[in-house]
Each structure stands twice: as structure tokens, then as C-alpha cells.
């Protein structure tokens, strides 16, 4: 099992120690107190994610199956959609409508890529069995 979570937890504890020192010895303002504490808590949560993810070994790549397509045009379209969306409040609401169109295409493309990946993984597993 991957021990990456231990590193994250160790780092969360280091941040926690600094946070406790700040709180116990010094006189932090509320924002500094919350920021440092939330950094430690966020890292601890990431460690928990890594621990749980390490126990779940169902990703194709974990079995040595490479199924991701070489190129993902749908992801490019998704990127352009995000750009159009964030620009809409500045350059005009019409960009949001364009983004809706490109977003639909992007999501459709991603769904198609994922189903293609799943088929490939299934075929590899059946072939390997």
C-alpha cells in the first residue's frame, strides 16, 4: 500500500506544531490564526484522501492498463469554455451563451472519451483473464 499519506500527515503535523506555537505563545490575530490552522487541516484531509485512495485499487493505471487517449480535444474545448465564462462579466453576457454551446460540446466529448476508455479497459481485463 502506498505510504504517501504518511508524508502528508507528517507535514500536517508540522504545520500543526507551528500553529500551536503561534496560538500558545504569541498573540495572533484571527485571520492569521485561521489561515495557518486551515492549512494544517487541509493537509490532514489530503492525507486522509490519500489513505482511502491507497486502499481502493480499481483505477486502470494501477493494473498497468493505459487507456487514456493520446489527445483530448474535449478537454481543450472545456478550457476554452472556462475562459469564455470568466470573460463574460467583463466583455459581455453573449460570451456566456457561446460558453454554454462549447461547454455542451466539451462535456459530450468527455463522456465519449470516458466510455471509450471503459470499453478498452474491459477488453484488456477480459483479455488478461
Amino acid at each position: 500500500m502506498s505510504r504517501g499519506w504518511v508524508v502528508m500527515l507528517a507535514w500536517a503535523l508540522m504545520l500543526g506544531v507551528v500553529w500551536v506555537v503561534q496560538w500558545a505563545i504569541f498573540d495572533p490575530d484571527l485571520i492569521a490564526f485561521v489561515l495557518l490552522g486551515s492549512a494544517s487541516a487541509t493537509t490532514a484531509l489530503m492525507a486522509l484522501w490519500a489513505l482511502l485512495a491507497g486502499r481502493r485499487r480499481d483505477a486502470p493505471a494501477d493494473e498497468g492498463i493505459e487507456a487514456t487517449p493520446d489527445a483530448s480535444h474535449a478537454t481543450v474545448l472545456l478550457g476554452i469554455t472556462v475562459l469564455l465564462l470568466v470573460l463574460a462579466p467583463v466583455l459581455g453576457g453573449w460570451l456566456a451563451f457561446t460558453a454554454a454551446g462549447t461547454g455542451l460540446l466539451a462535456v459530450g466529448g468527455l463522456v465519449r472519451e470516458r466510455s471509450s476508455e471503459r470499453r478498452a479497459v474491459r477488453a484488456a481485463r477480459e483479455g488478461g483473464a
Binding site: E66, A67, D70, T75, R119, A124
Partner: peptide, 25 residues
Amino acid sequence: MSATLPPPAVRRGPRLLGILSSTDH
């Protein structure tokens, strides 16, 4: 590695477009 499959067929565009949409790290 237990098996390495060729990736699913994706229609290839020009080389630059291929690199700009590549998933190869």
C-alpha cells in the same frame, strides 16, 4: 505491467493540434 493497450483510436489532427491537446505528460 499486466497489460498495455494501445490507446483508443482518436482522429488525429495536424501535429501541432495533436500536441496542444495531448495527454502525454
